[in-house]
Amino acid sequence: MRRLLALLPVAAFVIVLVGFMVGLRRDPSILPSMLIGKPLPAFTLAPLRANEAGLASVDLAGQPVLLNVFASWCGPCKEEHPTLLRLKAEGVPIVGLDWKEDAADGARWLDANGDPYLRAGNDRTGRAGIDLGVSGVPETFVVDRRGRVRYRQVGAITPQIWAETIEPLMARLKAES
């Protein structure tokens, strides 16, 4: 019994080690989505501020759009934010989904850091996030003009990711008719 007990730590360690080895081969920022090529799940979200329009899935049709999931409590969102503001200045349409917090917190955060969104909705319960398969913030979906999800970015959009992956995709989607 004592001998088996003493073997326990080394056994647990081997499992952890194998996990690390496999984990190391994966890039934590690449995430597939079940939704790729499928229409965006339907949702209707309340606005962040009382006098504004909210966000519904039907709002996203018509032109290729970035759907950015954010929250004021999320550190990497703050890192991503300057990039989003730059994209807004360049005329890229972005809509925001404020995830798992009170609308007032999200609104305050946008007031403080700048608002890159055409419109934004509050998903306090995380219900829309579940339908979208959101696993954490920040997360961004590229949605084409027919309202289909074409790409999912997990984690912050860096200028490099934008230039190498998303910008070419957006250009392609714009050319699609």
Partner: peptide
């Protein structure tokens, strides 16, 4: 890390 390996899911 482990949930991703076991279930292919990413969580935070």
């Amino acid at each position: 890390v482990f949930i991703e390996i076991l279930k292919g899911d990413k969580i935070s």
